[in-house]
């Protein structure tokens, strides 16, 4: 099935999608004292740790942002939040089919919906975190509001990219359960291969030209830098970068949807 066909069917079951997403969200923090607070506390704890280690101890200098703003925590969060979204989505999606095995074996609906619901539930957390980040920029006196529509568009593009990966990994993990451990390792490498903790300038300074070009083929580099451009530096990201991200995201999504539709036929038997 084509990616468009899959999208059409998914949008036809909007209500189920909404309900499954709500189930994910409500189930996640049920019976915890802090509830939704956890979804914000987690990135804050990461931010505090990374800031202490990389800014205070290792003395990484963030490049200056808009109007001479230099703040490692803000510089970090612009990249860390999108990264956490992608990484959570990938690990969450791999569990989504396994955890709902009973549903798949006993009821029929488009199976993609389970994966997409997982993606959307993380998107809600991501959105909340980004809103808090925007608020933080305003508090330090940086007027980000005009750039927020651009941020929203970029988030949509990132969601498309993450959905493609999620569809691919979710279905592969059912047939091949080692996938989740491989992905665990891959995520570690990917995290450090993206300019999240450090400015991208360090890469260009310390790597030969060919290696730096290779480094920039990583779509997370483009995403992270574009989020920083919009929020931290407050300038439009280069058109070439955005074009590359659109092509890669559409390609990854098409690949994920195609693999999913090829492999979903025997899901009920393999789970």
């Amino acid at each position: 099935m084509s990616a468009r066909g899959a999208l059409a069917e998914i949008s036809a079951s909007k209500e189920l999608l909404a309900n499954l997403t709500l189930r994910e969200l409500r189930g996640k923090y049920k019976r915890t004292a802090l509830g939704w607070g956890w979804s914000l506390l987690n990135p804050l704890a990461l931010m505090a740790t990374y800031s202490l280690v990389f800014s205070v101890l290792l003395r990484i200098e963030p490049p200056p942002g808009k109007d001479g703003l230099t703040s490692y925590p803000l510089f970090l969060l612009c990249a860390l939040l999108p990264w956490t979204f992608v990484s959570n989505t990938m690990t969450g999606a791999m569990e989504s089919l396994l955890q709902n095995a009973n549903l798949i074996k006993k009821t029929y609906f488009r199976r993609e919906i389970l994966v997409v619901a997982t993606v959307l539930s993380f998107l809600v957390s991501f959105g909340t975190e980004m809103a808090v980040l925007a608020l933080a920029f305003l508090i330090v006196g940086s007027m980000v509001v005009p750039w927020l529509p651009g941020v929203a568009l970029l988030m949509a593009l990132l969601t498309l990219f993450a959905s493609g990966l999620a569809l691919l990994l979710a279905v592969v993990n059912v047939y091949f359960r080692d996938a989740r451990y491989l992905v665990g390792i891959a995520l570690q490498l990917w995290f450090y291969a993206s300019p999240i903790l450090y400015p991208i300038a360090y890469v260009n300074e310390n790597l030969p030209g060919w290696a730096a070009s290779l480094y920039e083929a990583n779509p997370m580099v483009g995403f992270v830098e574009s989020f920083r451009d919009l929020l931290y530096v407050q300038q439009a990201p280069p058109l070439a970068t955005v074009g590359y991200l659109v092509v890669v995201s559409a390609g990854v999504f098409a690949l994920g949807a195609w693999c999913f539709s090829r492999l979903e036929g025997r899901l009920a038997e393999e789970l």
Binding site: R26, G27, K30, N102, L103, K106, T107, Y108
Partner: peptide
């Protein structure tokens, strides 16, 4: 299809 009653109930 009614293959299992309450399939997909979320306990919480």
């Amino acid at each position: 299809a009614l293959l299992e009653l309450g399939a997909g109930f979320h306990p919480e």
